[in-house]
Nucleic acid binder design. Structure first.
Lengths: 158, 158
DNA sequence: TTATGTATGTAATATCATAACAGGTCAAGA
DNA sequence: TCTTGACCTGTTATGATATTACATACATAA
């Protein structure tokens, strides 16, 4: 559960960058990036992996925030609503969005071997999904696109 | 939570048809469609909606099968593995596959208003997803494609 | 028939998530 | 400034979902 994209990258940079954008986005939405919410986003960025709500909660407790599940769930829900985080349902987990603000419909690629999770750009996937839905008269508002399979490293091993 | 496709259809026919195919598929796979498993599939077909594991379990209990969660979860997992049912993660629920045997990657369209769930044909969606994954060297084995939005009826009301 | 793999039943527990309410903070308008 | 209302946080309690572990039973083939 470690390499969220299947390659290396400048982690410190992407974290700072995302936090700055998170500020701007919430302000633009008239929403408040309060201490808990900010901290949860930072934690997701630091860990850089899909985290369960209770994992996040443990970190919050250690830092003096409330220690009951709603504290974590509310902050996470807020981040998801703002497009700053995503929920990965197959893992009952949450992960920071790496490209907030850009309209995007990420697909999550989950390695069944090593549990790495990558966020893949998926505009064409979303477009195809909307087309399929339109055929049935259905209008898509949100989508969860999750794939289970093998990441490059684990393919190599096998 | 009632009209799994957003239109009417011959329900009795589709049920019998699917059960017959289920027999053939499991036999072909060298798997056994035991009484519990068969019954769970029938229940999913009868109800013709996404059902939680505990809903299914209740039905099983009423018919004299074991009354502990693993009874339901194991049968459901079997059906999913055989491609006879699908898991809808957003709803923590399971639904019978309407076109078993045909290789397909269904997308689920979930109405946020009335909770109707439709299974949409989504080969193009899967193709797009596999392409996006391939760009990162990832091989897709299974996918969950779930969209939240408004079904035709609920659009009309609004 | 006996050995082997597989399926089922059951108890116990782990994990994930939300409802409901109390108290606190903040900012806008009287 | 004071009040008001909206929103945020903390906490209790509980509900909902899912799995582990182990015992028993069944089917199949050597």
């Amino acid at each position: 559960m470690h390499t969220p994209a299947f390659h290396n990258h400048d982690h410190a940079h992407c974290t700072g960058d995302v936090m700055a954008r998170a500020e701007a986005i919430t302000r633009a939405n008239g929403a408040r990036l309060t201490p808990v919410r900010r901290r949860v986003l930072e934690i997701l960025l630091e860990e850089h992996r899909a985290m369960g709500a209770y994992d996040v909660l443990q970190r919050l407790v250690a830092e003096g925030f409330g220690n009951q599940p709603p504290v974590a769930y509310r902050a996470l829900e807020f981040l998801v609503d703002q497009g700053l985080a995503h929920r990965v349902r197959r893992l009952n987990a949450f992960t920071a969005c790496m490209t907030p603000g850009e309209s995007h419909a990420p697909a999550f690629l989950i390695c069944r071997q090593c549990n790495a999770v990558a966020e893949a750009p998926a505009e064409p996937v979303r477009a195809a999904l909307e087309a399929a839905a339109a055929d049935l008269g259905f209008v898509v508002e949100r989508a969860n696109l999750e794939a289970l399979g093998l990441c490059p490293k684990c393919q190599a091993q096998a």
